[in-house]
C-alpha cells in the first residue's frame, strides 16, 4: 500500500465491495477498492464510464440504494467506519457535487432556501443571519449579484452558476472532504476552467480535501495531487499525478494516456483501446484488463493481480511488476516517451 505523508488519512477506503443485484445477474460494480485521502489534498479517481467511480463516490456518502448494497470492506473517516451505518453521524463532514447541476437543485425551492437549509442544520443559523451567510457563500463561489440570486429558482440560473450554487450548498455544511463526481463534464469548456479554479481556491482557503472523479485525463493532470486509476471496479494503479503521467506503470494507464488528443503525433490516428469495459458479474478471477491488454500473457488470464509497489508512494496491480515473472525481468516501468511514439505496440 502506498503511504502518503506521515499522518492518519482523513478518508481510508479499504477493500470496498458494492454489489448490484438485478433480476438477471449480480454486478460487482466496486470490487475491492482501496485508497486514502489526507487532509487538504486533492486525490483523483479516473476511469472510463462503467468503471465504478460514481458508485464509489456514492458509497462514501452513503447514497447507494437498492438494488445495490455495500457488501464488504470499510470506509474509514476519522477512525469511524462509515459502512457501519455511520453516515448520519458525519453528515456535513463530507459533501458531494454531482455531474448534472440542473438536476442537483430542487426545482421548487429557491437557491437560497436550499443553502439556508444546510446552514440551519450544520451551523444553526436562521432568519436574516442565515440569508446573509447564504449571500456570502454565493459570493465566495463567484456568483455575481448574490443578493438577487439568493431569491431565484434554480431554473433561472445558467449551468455554470447552478454548479457554483451547488458548491456553495456543499460549503454551507462546512465539510472536510468534498467529493466531486464529474463536476465539469456537463459544462462548457470555459466554464469548466472557471470551476476548476474555484475548487482550487476553495481548497486553499478552507483546507478542504477533494476527491476528484472524472474520465478526463487532462483535468486530472491539472487539478490533482495524487491519482487512482480505476478499471472495472478495481483500482489498477496509484501514483502522484506527475509520475503517473510521465511514467505509467499499468498498461491500462498507458493506453489511457495514449488516447489523449494532443499527446500523439498529429499525423497519426488517435489510438483507442479496443474492446469495452467489462461488467463484472462475479469476483475477479483474472486480470480484468487482460482481454484488451497488449502485454497480456498466460498468467494474466488465470489469476487476479495484486498491488505491487513500483516506486515511491506508488503501486500498480499488474503481473508485469510481480517479482520473478519473466516479463517483469524485461521491463518494469514503461517509459513515457514510448507512449508517444504512436500507434501499434506489442
Amino acid at each position: 500500500m502506498s503511504v502518503g505523508p506521515d499522518e492518519e488519512p482523513l478518508l481510508a477506503v479499504r477493500d470496498l465491495e458494492v454489489v448490484f443485484h438485478t433480476e438477471r445477474e449480480e454486478i460487482h460494480a466496486v470490487d475491492g477498492v482501496s485508497f486514502d485521502i489526507h487532509e487538504g489534498e486533492t486525490v483523483g479517481l479516473v476511469g472510463e464510464s462503467g468503471s465504478g467511480k460514481s458508485v464509489t463516490a456514492r458509497s462514501i456518502l452513503g447514497l447507494v440504494d437498492s438494488p445495490g448494497s455495500i457488501e464488504g470492506g470499510e470506509i474509514g473517516f476519522r477512525g469511524d467506519d462509515l459502512t457501519d451505518d455511520n453516515w448520519e453521524r458525519h453528515r456535513g463532514d463530507i459533501a458531494i457535487v454531482f455531474q448534472d447541476p440542473s438536476n442537483s437543485l430542487n426545482p421548487v425551492y429557491t437557491v437560497g432556501n436550499q443553502i439556508k437549509e444546510a446552514l440551519r442544520i450544520h451551523q444553526g443559523l436562521r432568519g436574516n443571519e442565515a440569508t446573509d451567510a447564504a449571500v456570502g457563500l454565493l459570493e465566495d463561489v463567484g456568483i455575481p449579484d448574490p443578493r438577487r440570486r439568493v431569491e431565484e429558482y434554480p431554473h433561472q440560473l445558467s449551468g455554470g452558476m447552478q454548479q457554483r450554487a451547488v458548491i456553495a450548498m456543499a460549503l454551507a455544511c462546512d465539510p472536510d472532504l468534498l467529493v466531486c463526481d464529474e463536476p465539469t463534464t456537463a459544462l462548457d469548456v470555459t466554464i469548466q476552467a472557471q470551476i476548476l479554479d474555484l475548487l482550487a481556491d476553495l481548497q486553499r482557503e478552507e483546507d478542504l480535501a477533494i476527491l476528484f472523479i472524472t474520465h478526463d485525463m487532462g483535468v486530472i493532470e491539472d487539478a490533482t495531487d495524487r491519482v487512482n486509476v480505476i478499471y472495472a471496479g478495481e483500482i489498477v494503479e496509484r501514483a502522484p499525478t506527475g509520475t503517473l503521467f510521465s511514467e505509467p506503470a499499468h498498461p491500462y494507464t498507458e493506453a489511457l494516456l495514449r488516447s489523449i488528443p494532443g499527446r500523439t503525433n498529429a499525423a497519426e490516428r488517435l489510438p483507442t483501446i479496443e474492446g469495452e469495459v467489462p461488467t463484472p458479474t462475479g469476483r475477479a478471477e483474472d486480470c480484468r484488463f487482460a482481454p484488451r491488454c497488449p502485454y497480456a500473457f498466460a498468467e494474466c488470464h488465470e489469476m487476479p493481480p495484486e498491488h505491487v509497489d513500483v516506486g515511491a508512494e506508488r503501486s500498480a496491480a499488474c503481473l508485469l511488476h510481480e517479482d520473478g515473472s519473466e516479463e517483469a525481468a524485461e521491463r518494469t516501468v514503461f517509459d513515457g516517451s514510448e507512449a508517444v511514439s504512436g500507434g501499434d505496440s506489442a
Binding site: I96, N103, N106, C173
Partner: peptide
C-alpha cells in the same frame, strides 16, 4: 433524482426529506 441525494447528503432529516422534498415535487 440527484437533488434528493444531495439533500440527504446535506443531512436533511428523513421527515423533511419525504415531506419537504419528495412529496412536494
Amino acid at each position: 433524482e440527484d437533488y434528493i441525494d444531495l439533500a440527504k447528503a446535506k443531512g436533511v432529516s428523513k421527515r423533511a426529506l419525504v415531506w419537504k422534498h419528495i412529496l412536494r415535487n
